[in-house]
Amino acid sequence: MGMLDISLQSFNSVSLLGALTVLLLIYFISSSSLDSHYNGKEPPGPTPLPVLGNLLQLDMKRIFITLPELFKKYGSVFTVYFGPKKVVVLAGYKTVKEALGNYDDVFGDRDPLLFVDEANQGHGVTWSNGDSWKEMRHFALSNLRQFGIGKKASEDKIIEESHHLIEVIKKFKGAAFDTTEPLTYAVSNIISSIVFGSRFEYDDPVPGP
């Protein structure tokens, strides 16, 4: 029994040492490859850990605070790793405008979601990419223009709805709140005003069956 315990302890020690050795090798390999990438080829950013990336350095519950702090340190274009996935972050109005306006071929695509891609097979305006997205966008815009999109009438409706949205935001008196519903209602009201000529109050009851 004593010899069995010693053997098990030796096996556990060897296994632990082997695992640590593998992790160290992964760390050094990934660090060296990242250093070569950061040599003027990719945007700067915090050094990631193997597998975990920068997850331990990011407050995922308050990512809207963490990312601006990285922006102050690394500039308006920087790299973070959400686990093994690399993400290049563009911060600031001018940077985003320049990227989408002057380099739309590079930044025009969006990150595909596997379950969405399987569901719509790459079709539709919302999640399509590349040539398919350009064709769908052209089709959608050309049809929306028939309803007044891009004309003075639609601009007036957007401005009017923005005033209603501002009034809703003011009711919270600077306190934190979930913006999902108010923004969704505002967008829906703009579409409703343009297409049907009427809008709905944000606190309208849900219609019954």
Rank of each mutant, 00 (worst) to 15 (best):
L56H: 13
L56I: 08
L56D: 04
L56A: 04
Q57A: 11
Q57E: 01
Q57V: 00
L58M: 11
K61G: 08
R62N: 15
R62I: 02
R62G: 04
R62H: 12
I63V: 13
F64A: 09
F64I: 06
T66A: 13
T66I: 01
L67H: 00
L67N: 02
L67F: 01
P68L: 04
P68I: 06
E69I: 03
E69D: 14
E69G: 04
L70W: 07
L70A: 05
K72G: 01
K72D: 09
K72P: 01
K73A: 01
Y74T: 08
F78P: 09
F78C: 02
T79K: 09
T79W: 00
Y81Q: 06
Y81T: 07
F82S: 03
F82I: 12
G83T: 12
P84C: 10
P84I: 15
K85G: 06
K85V: 12
K86D: 02
V87S: 12
V88T: 14
V88I: 15
V89W: 09
V89N: 02
V89H: 09
L90I: 08
G92A: 00
G92N: 00
G92D: 02
Y93N: 01
Y93A: 04
K94G: 01
T95E: 09
V96F: 08
K97Y: 02
K97R: 13
K97P: 01
K97W: 00
E98D: 13
E98H: 10
A99Y: 06
A99C: 13
A99W: 13
A99K: 07
L100S: 01
L100M: 15
G101P: 02
G101Q: 14
N102T: 14
N102L: 10
N102C: 03
Y103D: 08
Y103F: 14
Y103C: 07
Y103M: 12
D104E: 14
D105M: 07
D105A: 14
D105S: 10
D105H: 08
V106I: 15
F107D: 00
F107A: 05
F107M: 05
G108I: 03
D109P: 00
R110K: 11
D111E: 14
D111S: 08
P112H: 06
P112I: 05
L113C: 04
L113G: 01
V116T: 09
V116K: 10
D117R: 07
E118I: 14
A119F: 14
A119Y: 15
N120S: 11
N120E: 10
Q121I: 01
Q121H: 13
G122P: 05
G122I: 03
G122T: 12
H123V: 02
G124S: 11
V125T: 14
V125W: 14
T126V: 15
W127T: 13
W127I: 08
W127R: 01
S128F: 05
S128H: 07
N129V: 12
D131F: 04
S132V: 12
S132M: 13
